[in-house]
């Protein structure tokens, strides 16, 4: 039996399900498959929570060989994975996590430039993951978009585009700062995904939870160092690939279940959860600037087929039966 040493890394700590399932689904699945074959055994070193590679440099860390494989958060590496971030520029999509990762996987299969992002960065893509749908947590109730007028809302990065046009002022921040920002009054609320909001305990300071459903967002995947992968015995390669598929499916299932749990826990903790009426959701979407077009123009100028990605993306959401209040490709 041959022993192979592999180091798995992630910028996020294992409280996040995509890291937890890397540790508890992906790795055991590889081990199980190889144990069945009996020829190879992997000796894992695990370094999560940014102790080896930081968020924002995961792809470089893996490509350099500092780690062999791990989670790459494309959300935090937008310059390297511009097309993978399409969902962040097309808000009000689907809240179906699995549909989201399948949609991106389909685009990566059909549009070479999208798959190339991984190869060109020295990586082999093994599976993808989406964050659960974004909603809004505020100190005040929201029933119409006018309620946001003049309010300060934490909305970092691309999410700032989901706020601009509503009359609210966007404030920067991260999961680490939301709690203090809202508690102290630096902002009056935050646009964030449910499982992240629970982790940051946002509902303690912003108890009004309005389900706007900005949509689930593709945020990254598991990737392995390309050269290292190609040198592995075929049997090990196959085990790793299959474990990647299993991880993708299991993560999506587990994360969806977790969202329901988190909402229940928040309600039990006193949060006032309500759903934004469909008509208001449409008014909100219409109030925004054509952000997807801005994004596509920017990427096209860099020689990337962003229009094709945008069209393909909207088409596959609509084809899957998603009721989108605004078709961003139009």
């Amino acid at each position: 039996q041959q022993t192979i040493k592999l180091t798995a890394a992630a910028g996020h700590p294992p409280v996040f399900l995509w890291v937890k399932t890397l540790d508890e689904v992906f790795i055991p699945e590889v081990d199980r498959k190889l144990a069945a074959g009996g020829k190879y055994k992997i000796e894992w070193t695990k370094a999560f929570g940014g102790t080896l590679v930081k968020l924002g440099s995961e792809s470089k860390g893996i490509a350099d060989g500092v780690a062999d494989l791990g989670v790459v958060s494309t959300l935090f590496e937008a310059a390297k994975f511009p097309l993978q971030n399409v969902s962040y520029y097309t808000p009000f999509g689907t809240d179906n996590i699995e549909l989201m990762s399948q949609t991106i996987a389909g685009l990566q299969k059909n549009i070479p430039a999208m798959a190339d992002a991984w190869n060109k960065n020295g990586l082999t893509y093994l599976g993808g993951m989406a964050l659960d749908s974004y909603h809004i947590w505020t100190k005040f109730p929201i029933t119409r978009i006018e309620d946001l007028n003049g309010k300060k809302i934490s909305a970092p990065g691309p999410a700032a585009n989901w706020i601009r046009g509503t009359g609210a002022v966007g404030v920067a921040g991260s999961l680490n700062t939301y709690y203090e920002d809202i508690k102290s009054g630096v902002s009056d609320g935050v646009v964030v995904f449910t499982t992240g909001a629970w982790g940051a305990k946002v509902h303690e300071v912003a108890p009004y939870v309005t389900k706007v459903n900005f949509g689930a967002q593709f945020a990254g995947g598991i990737a392995i160092n390309k050269r290292r992968f190609e040198k592995l015995p075929p049997e090990v390669q196959a085990a790793i690939r299959e474990a990647g598929d299993k991880w993708t499916a299991e993560y999506a299932k587990a994360q969806s279940a977790l969202v329901d749990t988190r909402f229940k826990e928040m309600a039990a903790a006193g949060a006032k959860i309500s759903e934004l009426p469909e008509a208001e959701r449409k008014r909100w979407a219409d109030a925004l600037s054509p952000v997807a077009k801005t994004w596509a123009a920017d990427a096209q100028s860099k020689g990337l087929p962003a229009d094709q990605v945008l069209n393909g993306y909207m088409n596959s959401l609509i084809k899957a039966g998603t009721k989108v209040p605004r078709d961003w490709s139009k």
């Binding site: 520029y89 585009n161 966007g170």
Partner: peptide, 16 residues
């Protein structure tokens, strides 16, 4: 080469 930036398209952007 890849015009690496912080921020987001359509919002604040600065080159790295």
């Amino acid at each position: 080469r890849i015009r690496e930036y912080v921020g987001a398209v359509g919002d604040f952007q600065a080159p790295v």
